[in-house]
Amino acid sequence: MEKKEELKIRHIISSLEDLQYGSVIITVHDGEITQVDTTEKKRFPLGKSRPVKAR
């Protein structure tokens, strides 16, 4: 495997390992990886519990 291709694959793996919630989008043109987009989502628990409404 070419050195450039190895770097691309390492970058993708690193992006996946660092991600807890989100997505990694790999863009390919003519069989070559041209772009990697990482979107990370942060989730925060609600501070208060909501009261249950009586029916």
Rank of each mutant, 00 (worst) to 15 (best):
D37F: 03
L19S: 03
R55P: 10
T34C: 04
I25Q: 12
L19R: 01
G22L: 06
A54W: 11
Y21K: 06
F44G: 01
L7H: 12
F44L: 06
K42A: 10
E40C: 07
G31T: 05
R50I: 01
V28N: 07
S15E: 05
V24C: 05
I26F: 02
I12R: 01
G47P: 01
E2A: 09
V36K: 00
A54I: 14
L7F: 07
G31S: 07
I25L: 11
R10Q: 14
K42F: 13
K53F: 13
G31W: 04
G22Q: 07
G31M: 03
E17I: 07
S49E: 09
K53R: 15
V28F: 12
I13N: 05
E40I: 08
R43H: 10
K53G: 13
I26K: 03
T27Q: 15
V36F: 01
T27D: 14
K4M: 07
S23M: 01
S23E: 06
G31E: 04
T39E: 13
F44E: 08
L16S: 05
Q35N: 15
I13S: 10
D18A: 07
E2G: 10
T38K: 03
E40Q: 12
T39R: 10
F44N: 04
E40D: 05
D37G: 03
E32D: 15
K42R: 12
S15L: 04
Q35E: 14
L46R: 00
V52C: 09
R43V: 14
S15H: 08
S49F: 06
L16C: 08
M1F: 12
R10I: 07
D18L: 07
I9E: 11
R10S: 12
S23V: 00
H11I: 11
E32K: 14
H29N: 13
R43G: 06
S14W: 02
I9R: 11
A54V: 11
K42H: 15
D30V: 04
S14I: 04
H29D: 15
P45S: 11
K48F: 07
I25W: 05
E5S: 06
I26Y: 03
K48L: 08
I9M: 10
E6G: 02
S14P: 01
E17M: 09
V36Y: 00
D30I: 03
S15D: 08
P51A: 14
R50T: 02
S49I: 10
E5W: 02
I26W: 03
V52D: 10
R43D: 03
G22P: 03
Y21W: 04
K41Q: 12
I12C: 01
H11M: 15
L46E: 00
R10Y: 09
K53L: 15
K3R: 13
H11N: 15
E17T: 08
E5T: 09
L46Y: 00
D18K: 12
K42C: 10
G31L: 03
G47R: 00
M1A: 14
M1V: 13
T38R: 01
K4L: 05
D37L: 10
T39L: 05
E2C: 08
E5A: 04
D18I: 02
T38L: 04
K8R: 15
S23C: 02
R55W: 08
V36Q: 01
V52L: 13
K8M: 14
P51G: 14
Q35G: 11
K48N: 10
L7R: 14
R43P: 00
L46M: 06
E40T: 12
D18Q: 11
D37Q: 13
R10D: 12
K3C: 03
L7P: 01
